[in-house]
Design a protein around this nucleic acid. Structure first.
Lengths: 168, 168
DNA sequence: TATTGTTATACTCTATAACTATA
DNA sequence: TATAGTTATAGAGTATAACAATA
């Protein structure tokens, strides 16, 4: 009963929690629509991008980076491998692990996807200068760090843009 | 082949699209955990908050505000009504519509939920002053407007914080 | 015993459609 | 015919568990 009449109730869009939730769903959905011609989803972009940055990592490492569960990752890598975009190779030291590599077709597809992503984000920031964009990015990264999301400056931290949860 | 070697590839967390997606999922999950003792979810907070602001609206109007489909809303209102938190009354002019109202128990539960939400958002913004917080909020609202989310300044625009999609 | 990858099953959520009653 | 609400069914996605191979 401490704040029962002092300050007026906030509407949903005055709460960053709800704004972030709605923005996250909306941008993912929109980016997914823009990716449709390439026949991939945002999560595949996350996988390809991570693998291109850190070639040869295991599925397990990939799972930890993207917060996608092992069971789900199997199917995703299956599909990407079937389409000739990535490849499972023998791991140099751990024989029970696979070493994942992006194939040329995968790198080319990623390049096209990133063009689409860049265009979409340019649309998001419209007439804003690069200073505003970097300020917003920095703010989001800071909130992410505070929210408990792994340090956004670390290369092993990724976002899949699809909201998958790891079972516990 | 325009940008194939000029600028280096951006990591996932340098893309606001992926940051927003991950933040949206994370904050919703975290807020949901904090709400667990009240036995409700973020979407229920959105419903109660909207109904308290606009008492007597129909289910259809509530659906449009929160971007939740009619079919899903039936079950949500059923549950809230069963728990004595909201009530379906006769609509004064449209006999085929229901007029939704928050009951005292629902208002009390919402008050507790908003205390939890305020505490969580204070944690998100830690040592930041109210000026930083309002700047971030304004930025998010501006991006939301640009992204095509309905004008965040309009009272009939809400976010459910759960990512439900309306079938098309 | 713990880890990596895989498979199978059950469950949750949601998309689609169809229905009733009002207008 | 169109709208508000409801119900039922099927499908997509995911959690849980269990398994084989390796360490």
């Amino acid at each position: 009963m401490s704040t029962s009449e002092g300050r007026p109730r906030l509407r949903l869009h005055e709460h960053p929690t709800f704004l972030l939730a709605q923005l996250g769903v909306h941008t993912t959905e929109r980016f997914g629509s823009l990716l449709a011609p390439l026949n991939i989803q945002p999560r595949h972009v996350a996988v390809l991008s991570t693998l291109l940055d850190r070639s040869g990592i295991s599925q397990q490492q990939l799972c930890e980076s993207l917060h996608i569960h092992r069971n789900v990752m199997v199917g995703m890598v299956d599909e990407l491998e079937r389409r000739g975009l990535v490849e499972r190779r023998r791991h140099p030291v751990q024989r029970r692990a696979h070493a994942l590599h992006v194939l040329p077709a995968g790198a080319e597809l990623l390049r096209k996807a990133e063009e689409i992503l860049d265009a979409y984000e340019a649309e998001l920031f419209e007439s804003d200068g690069s200073d505003v964009r970097s300020a917003v990015l920095e703010t989001l990264q800071r909130i992410a760090t505070r929210a408990g999301v792994r340090d956004a400056s670390q290369p092993e931290c990724g976002g899949c843009g699809a909201g998958e949860q790891v079972p516990h």
